[in-house]
């Protein structure tokens, strides 16, 4: 992903009909005019709605429990009752293969996994978890990073020294290695800090782990932005007028770094979803029988020869979602800071 730093409040370029409109309104208009970005918003809406409708689909359309093994179950294909786990009939009769895609929404649309569970239902449930983790972790990262970046950049001196070195330490670890180490420890025992306890299988664990490892990714540009803002005339003027530290941070600095964080947010969702998938694929993310797109890919790994759709479907879902989020992120950046686009080499 390209490094994206956007400075200040939404920039205002002269445009027809823009007189009197706030920078935010102008940014919104520019975003709405970006057809590619809006197409991706549409794609994301479809994915989110489909995932939110997972229980509806599983219980009222597919009539299946996607979290329960169904190795001896049956389903209907072309009006005939067939076993979900099909024993090989040719040759020596070795092996049992889950049913493949039926392309019938009511009966194992995308086939079954190695436990005889409906892949389509699990894909939707898995998407819910992947999105929840991605969005929550990105939100948490942005909040923590904003706080750290604001404090470090504004106060400077020893506070900045300590916080910046802490960020350096976290950033010095390869992100995946750090995430894997934390997950391996915490998923075996859970997390207990005083009265605060997270159980080993809780979704909050992968959310917290992913959020923490990416804090430096956002906090460092925010800190840089704050350092720059701290020297600007309007801040100097506010200080001269006797504004309190709290007021300076809340009213003068924060609104001006918000755009940076907003641009980062969709990109962080994409990165967090990829990280979650990787951790789940390594069995240290979402724990069974819960699903995420990463765990479904893991389930499908052993079926690549016979039922590749089990791994392909979540893989495609991840790719489409991440692509949509990245394009949307770029669109938001362009909308909030059109000068950046004009400045960029080859910019349109």
């Amino acid at each position: 992903m390209s490094e994206t730093v956007v400075g200040g409040a939404p920039a205002q370029l002269a445009a027809p009909g823009s007189a009197g409109a706030s920078p935010w309104t102008l940014a919104r208009r520019r975003l709405l005019r970006n057809r590619v970005a809006m197409t991706m918003v549409g794609v994301l809406v479809v994915i989110v709605v489909a995932c939110l409708a997972a229980p509806l689909y599983a219980h009222h359309v597919a009539h299946t429990d996607p979290f329960r093994s169904n190795l001896d179950g049956t389903t209907i294909v072309n009006g005939k009752t067939v076993p979900i786990m099909q024993e090989e009939s040719g040759g020596l009769g070795l092996g049992v293969t889950p049913i493949g895609p039926t392309w019938d929404l009511r009966h194992y649309f995308l086939g079954a996994d190695d436990q005889g569970r409906d892949v389509a239902s699990r894909l939707l449930y898995g998407g819910r978890n992947s999105l929840i983790i991605g969005v929550s972790a990105a939100l948490l990262t942005c909040i923590l990073a904003t706080i750290v970046g604001l404090v470090a950049g504004f106060f400077g001196g020893i506070v900045d020294g300590i916080l910046s070195r802490l960020l350096d330490v976290v950033w010095a670890f390869p992100v995946y290695l750090l995430a894997i180490s934390l997950s391996t420890v915490l998923l075996t025992r859970g997390l207990r800090i005083g009265p605060f306890h997270l159980e080993a299988g809780s979704l909050l664990l992968p959310i917290s782990i992913i959020a923490v490892v990416y804090v430096p990714y956002v906090a460092r540009p925010v800190r840089g932005e704050v350092l720059s803002l701290r020297q600007r005339e309007f801040v100097e003027a506010a200080i001269g007028l006797g504004a309190s530290t709290w007021r300076l941070l809340w009213s003068d600095i924060l609104p001006n770094v918000t755009t940076t964080v907003i641009v980062f947010f969709p990109l962080m969702i994409a990165i967090d979803m990829l990280t979650e998938s990787a951790l789940s694929f390594l069995s240290i993310g979402v724990q069974p029988p819960s699903a995420s797109w990463g765990t479904i890919i893991l389930d499908g790994q052993g079926l690549l020869y016979t039922r590749p759709v089990v791994a392909l479907a979540p893989g495609i879902a991840i790719a489409v979602t991440v692509l949509a989020l990245n394009v949307l992120g770029d669109g938001i950046r362009d909308a909030l800071d059109p000068r950046a686009k004009h400045r960029a080499p080859g910019g349109r």
């Binding site: 040719g90 040759g91 020596l92 070795l94 092996g95 293969t97 079926l303």
Partner: peptide, 19 residues
Amino acid sequence: PPADRLGEMGSKYASQVHI
């Protein structure tokens, strides 16, 4: 052998399988 190779082994390579 992995589960998804058993079918292939039992059909295309049956003479090489010993159970």
